[in-house]
Design a binder for these strands. Sequence first.
DNA 1: TTTTGAGTTGTTCGA
DNA 2: GTCGAACAACTCAAA
Length: 484
Amino acid sequence: MRTLVWFRGKDLRVADHAPLASALATGEFVPLFVLDTHFFAPERARELPNRIQFLLDSLSSLAQNLEHAGSRLVVVRGRSVELVPRIAASLGAERVVAQRWSEPFARLRDQRIAEALDRAQIRFELFEGETLIAPGTVRTGQGGVFSVFTPFARAVDKLLPELGEPLRAPKKLPALPASLGLDEVPIPSMAELGLEENPLVLRGGERAARARLEAFVKGPLSSYASDRDRMDVEGTSRLSADLKFGTLSIRAAYLRAKSAEARGEAPPEQVQKFTSELLWREFAYHTLFDRPELLERPFRRAFEGFPWRDDEAGWMAWVEGKTGYPVVDAAARQLLAEGYVHNRARMIAASFLTKHLMIDFRRGEAHYMRHLVDGDWASNDLGWQWSAGSGCDAQPYFRIFNPISQGERFDPEGGYVRRWVPELAKLPAKWIHQPFEAPAQVLAQAGVKLGVDYPRPIVVLGEGRDRFLAAAKAHFGSDKPPEP
DNA sequence: TTTTGAGTTGTTCGA
DNA sequence: GTCGAACAACTCAAA
């Protein structure tokens, strides 16, 4: 039986890849990747350079891994909606297999492809692997959709012991004929797409992902619960991009952490904290699956029509890292430089934009989505809506992060600020999170001229806070945040 | 149907 | 400087 294994942007691996394993078990197959012109047109690629870079890196690695096992990745260029059915038919494939992709636009695309394949009497099979548990299958006792994390996590926890072991990477794959009569294209380079390589973007591919996982398990995992919040410490897993592009399967990540616990490599409470973070990703995927409108609309409906401010100057300052609040600015600059931001810094930045500046969370969300290497629709949306107060398990409206106290707690020596806001690097820790309060002599010694080398605050924290609280009160008609 | 316990990530104020 | 209370009750989900 001839199968078309359709690799896509979220399953770029050979290990623990259910569609590949299924194809291998049933006979000969062709591995395919479609460079969708929707994303790989130069004008579009320019908007997403960091993710394109990680993806191309991962794609090359996938091609190598397939070749190493005796097969070959067939790469074509065009619209997948047209190409996949056409190629499947021209190859005489009896079925097309892929990993399920559950985000709203992807479901729509897959539905159209399924219809086209159906007309050609070709089977289309989607396999799990994007999440630990299939979205749409975790339900409350009443059969409802969870909208609070903790009960959701408890429900998922009961299902996790049934997770099977990850599938091993196949050692030997059936060879392909030299020519399949398709318009194959090489994997483009960044230069060919008119993009510059960013050396600060993580390397993609399965090998890099596996190395990161092992380094994390042997190092930061043991003190994850406390260090994950420290912006000046490498205390997180840094696996977000690997999980987004599927160069590491979520199941492999989860089970490796559990095995670290079983082998005594890391204390149970630390591992528990990490797996709980993986379940937040799970929660985001499941929530978006059940409520696809969330990418456009607030989870709490009463946030609809909230009087977000048009503040171009504030927006630009936030984007460029010139708000005058060092942690907020460090986050902005890390995003532009690395395509990555520490989780704690993401929350502080999001809170500042949506609360102190009172700018629509969707604007910040889109900006992050554009630059993040790990930019993931479900997680990014859940995080932004949570920060704005409009989301699932939203923080109460009166909980507004103070960037100074957050900085002092989670970047006590100022290492994070010093790295990303170098003009403040010589300030003593006591003033690094509030240079505008530092005595003139301290500033002079650190070589900082406020308003020249580094901006004065664009908004007074108390005033921004009061403005948001007053607007919330006026909009919701009372002090309370609205129900979903 | 009603009750009950709990809910990621905080801040500010005043004693 | 430290500590507890107030913030504001409401919804969720299970019993």
